Simulated assay, not measured.
Amino acid sequence: MTTVLLVDDQSLLRVGFRMVIESEPDLEVVGEAADGQVALEQVAALAPDVVLMDIRMPGMDGIEATRRVVAEHPSSRVLVLTTFDVDDLAFAALRAGASGFLLKSARPDELVDAIRTVAAGTSVVAPRVLRRMLDLFAPHLPDAGGAVPADPARDPRVRSLTPRELDVLRLVADGCTNSEIAAELFVSETTVKTHVGSVFGKLGARDRVQAVIIAYECGLVARGGSAPVAGG
């Protein structure tokens, strides 16, 4: 059973989400919150597998609440609710550690699929969409990473990666699937999965979303396009 906490300041939306979620035999709503502070208290008390998090709320918003949930309760994964698929606040929430975002207009089947995907440890945002968000919004965020280093591979966050792992990270950040990476690097998909797992472990990234953001901040991927694959 996957447990879900609903966080939205609109009670009607929470009722609708609850009806959809609890119609599935493997999903259970264990609590609700109308603002970020109450959400943190509920996460601490209930330890839900997935937090369905609105962004715009009174008091503590969904971005700060996401940051706190990820830092204080890493076993609970956050799925952000947003109005637009390319949105600066949605991207800020991803940067804060959310595992993906979902449009509030999503179909019921899309909602339950997204919850199951996030609970299983996979991100719910296409890497190419994330790259578009990065190009649009990352340079304007208050905590944007600053100037791109002359040698991205020397950034301390990626210094421990092998040349092949750097290749894999660049391709992940460019939106490639495991099978596409395998074809590009002339290796098996099993080998790619091993490399991806190692990259995530060394970066401390829980999923592709976080890995893409780190690669972008380190300058491994050029803004507006992919960096050339280097190394052997």
Rank of each mutant, 00 (worst) to 15 (best):
V129R: 15
L161R: 05
D113G: 13
L161A: 06
A126T: 13
K193W: 00
L111P: 05
L169T: 02
T190Y: 02
L169S: 01
D135S: 10
T117E: 12
S99E: 13
E180G: 12
D155P: 06
T190G: 14
P149A: 06
D143S: 06
L161E: 01
T191R: 14
P127I: 05
G146W: 00
L102F: 01
A96E: 09
H140G: 09
R107L: 12
A144L: 02
A120W: 00
D143V: 03
D88T: 10
C176L: 13
R164F: 02
M133E: 13
P127E: 03
A120S: 15
R131V: 06
F91T: 11
R95W: 00
C176A: 12
D88H: 11
V192G: 06
R128A: 14
A144D: 11
A147S: 12
E189H: 07
A144S: 15
A126I: 07
S99R: 15
L89R: 13
R157F: 01
G97S: 08
L94W: 08
L169F: 01
C176T: 09
R131D: 06
S188E: 04
G145C: 06
T177I: 03
A119V: 11
F101T: 05
G175I: 10
V172M: 15
V158L: 06
D155G: 04
T190M: 08
E180M: 07
R128K: 15
D87Y: 01
V112N: 04
A182L: 05
A90K: 03
L171R: 14
S105A: 12
H140N: 07
A153H: 05
V168N: 09
F91H: 13
A93H: 01
F91A: 12
N178I: 02
G100Q: 07
P163I: 05
V112R: 06
F137H: 07
L134Q: 11
P156Y: 05
L103Y: 03
L161V: 07
V129H: 14
A90L: 08
V192N: 05
R164P: 10
A150I: 05
L111V: 14
S160W: 03
G100K: 13
I115W: 00
A126M: 06
K104D: 12
G121M: 03
A150H: 09
D109Y: 15
D88A: 12
P127Q: 03
M133G: 14
L103K: 10
R164G: 13
D113K: 15
L161S: 03
T122Y: 13
A138Q: 13
T190V: 14
L102Y: 00
F137P: 04
S179Q: 11
R107Y: 02
M133V: 04
G97V: 15
V172C: 11
A90H: 02
E184C: 06
A153F: 03
E189C: 09
V158P: 05
A182Q: 10
